[in-house]
Design a protein around this nucleic acid. Structure first.
Length: 474
RNA sequence: GCCCUCGUCAUCUAGCCAGGUUAGGAUACAGGCCUUUCAAGCCUGCGGCGGGGGUUCAAAUCCCCCCGAGGGCACCA
């Protein structure tokens, strides 16, 4: 039985890179009929951010990445880690280190100055019982370090990258438990992965160098070693690791910018992996069906905002209007176009087909639809100058008002016949009638399709807008 | 500085493992068609195997060197 986990630390919102890691874990679990576990790595109390806990779960749910076990919290499992550390100590796999942070820092700097790797110099590795006693008497609390073999190497097979090996001389005696009794990442991670019976560790490439350390711990403890798969990093346009300075990085931020969860998911799936057969649009079900760890790319991928936007517009176009109406609602409210308790949802559902292939994100919805809701519309000056100022267009607008006034019922088809008829009688092209009318009703030269818009707006409001516009330029 | 990993259009990628089509698709960009505006859609164009050696009848694909990029080097995760 495949068991995988996603183990974020609650130091901020769910990052897009982490979300991709979560997705690949989730996909693999689904594909293999396994279990997806959520574990919160909150052992660094100082760095924990209260709101991060909720934000991460929220983002996971929004993406639809549901977990079967957890969330487990490492901060509630400290007793477990302490037991394990005690055992490592007793069996000689670890030792107490009494060095002070300043001392370590100084020695690191010196090593660097000598052109050496800034590793711990194993100062306390072979302390005599007497020396230890001396430090203890002085009241120094030790950190516990793992005793890395002085020679030899540790290697493992990465599902994505193949064989990777590290010389033990390149690995320092890393801390497994801090002096305050809280375990560090590498220890807690191994213990949890073991007790949670994780079979495949799928995580970011930034963990490759942690892997040999963890394998050393697995071996010391006699734990079976799981499979590893290290995913490539996600980069910003400047090819450095994707971070805040590249703009929004959290899943929640993209949600708030009006992206659909399926678009984000599809986008993330394409970062480092691709389905067979030249396809870009891929559903959650297809992803599960076709996902393979072996097919994951080895090189880092640049976050391509244009592609995300394109995917989003695709899902906007293909979403049922009723769903889109509900999704757009918060954005319209945010702009004050719709008030609390006043949800003309059925009108929204009629409007959606007109704008869903135009707006690329939900955030653009207000701009496309505001004229449906506003009492007073604002005119774009250049639009007025171009289409309302001159004699001919004012006359056509007035005539349009007259033919529309007698239309019954006020449907798209009837409006079209009336306006085209008018243009023909006046010997002008249809657009000479449409454009002024568009500016009069929407205030802009760019809008959703005019005829459908008028039909939804209704006869009364349409005539009102024309009157207002004529007054405005008259 | 040391260690690890990686390198196909501007970007995401197919092809590489099992050498043999004009190196395919998508986004972006440019142009065209359609059209009441803007989009969408359709068509066309632009554009790449990091460099150099080697093996071979044949190299994006196998080997070596160089260059470049990313990651790691915490009592963070």
């Amino acid at each position: 039985m495949v068991r995988v986990r996603f183990a974020p630390s609650p130091t901020g919102h769910l990052h897009m890179g982490s979300a991709r890691t979560a997705l690949f874990n989730w996909l693999y679990a689904r594909k293999m009929g396994g279990v997806f576990i959520l574990r919160i790595e909150d052992t660094d109390l100082r760095r924990n951010v209260d709101e991060a806990f909720g934000a991460i779960l929220e983002a996971m749910r929004w993406l639809g990445l549901d977990w079967q076990e957890g969330p487990y919290y490492q901060s509630q499992r400290l007793h477990l880690y302490r037991e394990v550390v005690k055992r490592l100590l007793e069996e000689g796999w670890a030792y107490p280190c009494y060095c002070l942070p300043q001392e370590l820092e100084e020695r690191r700097r010196e090593a660097l100055k000598r052109g050496e790797k800034p590793m711990y110099d194993r100062h306390c590795r072979d302390l005599s019982p007497k020396e230890r006693e001396k430090w203890e008497k002085e009241g120094r609390k030790p950190a516990i370090r793992f005793k890395v073999p002085l020679e030899g190497k540790t290697s493992f097979r990465d599902i994505i990258r193949g064989r990777i090996e590290f010389l033990h001389q390149e690995i320092e005696d890393f801390v497994i438990m801090r002096k305050d009794g809280i375990p560090t990442y590498n220890l807690a991670c191994v213990v949890d992965d073991h007790y949670m019976e994780i079979t495949h560790i799928i995580r970011g490439e930034d963990h490759i160098s942690n892997t040999p350390k963890q394998i050393l711990i697995y071996n010391a403890l006699g734990y079976p070693i799981p499979q590893f798969a290290h995913l490539p990093m996600i980069l910003g346009p400047d090819k450095s690791r994707l971070s805040k300075r590249h703009g929004a990085t959290s899943v929640n931020a993209y949600r708030d910018m009006g992206f659909l969860p399926e678009a984000v998911l599809n986008f993330l799936a394409l970062l480092g992996w691709s389905p067979g057969g030249n396809r870009e649009i891929i559903s959650r079900e297809e992803m599960i069906e076709e996902f393979e760890l072996e097919g994951v790319k080895r090189h880092p991928a640049v976050f391509n905002m244009d592609k995300l936007i394109w995917l989003n517009s695709h899902y906007m176009k293909t979403s049922p209007p009723s769903r889109l109406a509900h999704l757009a609602l918060p954005f319209l409210k945010r702009e004050g176009l719709i008030k609390e308790g006043d949800y003309p949802i059925e009108i929204l559902e009629r409007i959606m087909p007109l704008v869903q292939e135009r707006a690329k994100t939900l955030e653009e919805m207000p701009r496309w639809t505001d004229f449906f809701f506003k009492q007073e519309i604002e005119y774009e000056q250049s639009a007025v100058e171009e289409w309302l100022r001159d004699e001919l267009h004012r006359k056509l607008l007035l005539l349009a008002k007259e033919v529309l006034a007698v239309l019954e019922p006020f449907t798209k088809e009837n409006i079209e016949v009336a306006l085209r008829g008018l243009a023909e009688r006046e010997g002008v092209k249809a657009k000479e009638v449409f454009h002024p009318l568009r500016v009069a009703v929407t205030g802009r030269t760019v809008s959703p399709p005019l005829l459908e818009s008028l039909a939804i707006l209704g006869k009364e409001k349409t005539l009102q807008r024309i009157t207002q516009a004529l007054k405005y330029v008259g």
